[in-house]
């Protein structure tokens, strides 16, 4: 391994079509290590499509996609998780009938190894691993600020807690890139503020964050760099304050707000 480059994720010329509809056309962007990178755009701009390409749910039609200096042009979600991309979902997708703790423990799956034999014999390595998994899961629950009994079923958590649990579950996979799909959707101002603090501390712990958001204020206050998508094309990229002055962006998206 050579010294890790500054760029963590790089997309160039990415295209994705659904039938005749071009959801993404020739999108190129790169995300640097340790930054919080925002992706904004009006509804239907292709944000979630791009997100699904990065996390392996969709295969891209054209272009290249490299992560951590490896190319992943056509890759399954679990391999990308293995490589270090973890995600949350826009409409929360927890394991509803499992406990909060178990949800996070599932996130450890990709970094642990014990199989059938270990499960049956409860050998020393397996027991130690189980303890470590549970311990780390407890830590993460505290870290994201879920102070409920850890055996609460995920579906019985409040909305805000479910969002946080998703983040805890994603963090459990030890990601290099944490990709969040509208994490503050439906939250009130206080909840948004505390989530913002959480994201900052996640970044300070060395995890790169990719953020898709409708909440422009959050993006502007939090992100180091921002890209703007419109009709499947990247129309601007740069520091938040530059982007918000960009005429193309104002025309396409910010409109009256800017």
């Amino acid at each position: 391994m050579t010294q890790p480059s500054e760029t963590l994720l790089e997309l160039s010329g990415v295209c994705k079509h659904f039938g005749g509809l071009a959801a993404l056309s020739a999108v190129s962007l790169h995300i640097k290590r340790g930054e919080i990178y925002g992706l904004i755009g009006p509804n239907g701009a292709g944000k979630t499509t791009l997100f699904n390409v990065i996390t392996g749910l969709y295969q891209l039609d054209e272009g290249t996609f490299s992560f951590d200096a490896n190319s992943y042009a056509c890759c399954k979600p679990h391999l990308l998780a293995q490589a270090g991309i973890a995600r949350t979902f826009q409409n929360i997708r927890l394991f509803a009938n499992m406990t909060a703790l178990e949800n996070v423990m599932v996130g450890r799956h990709v970094r642990t190894h014990s199989g059938i034999w270990g499960a049956l014999t409860h050998n020393r390595a397996t027991c130690a691993e189980e303890r470590a998994i549970a311990g780390r899961a407890h830590e993460l629950l505290r870290y994201v600020g879920i102070h409920r009994p850890s055996n609460t079923l995920a579906k019985n958590l409040s909305y805000g807690e479910q969002r946080r649990l998703e983040i805890a579950r994603a963090l459990a996979t030890e990601p290099k890139l944490l990709a969040l799909d509208e994490p503050v959707a439906g939250m009130n101002a206080t909840e948004t503020e505390s989530l913002k603090a959480l994201l900052q501390s996640i970044r300070n712990d060395g995890v790169t964050v990719l953020l898709i958001e409708h909440d422009v204020k959050l993006i502007m206050g939090l992100c180091d760099r921002v890209a703007v998508l419109d009709y499947g094309k990247k129309i601007a990229e740069g520091k938040p304050e530059d982007v918000r002055r960009d005429p193309a962006v104002i025309a396409a998206y910010l409109g009256g707000e800017a």
Partner: peptide
């Protein structure tokens, strides 16, 4: 889908 995204 979520399980797959978590690396399973």
């Amino acid at each position: 889908v979520a399980a797959n995204a978590m690396g399973i």
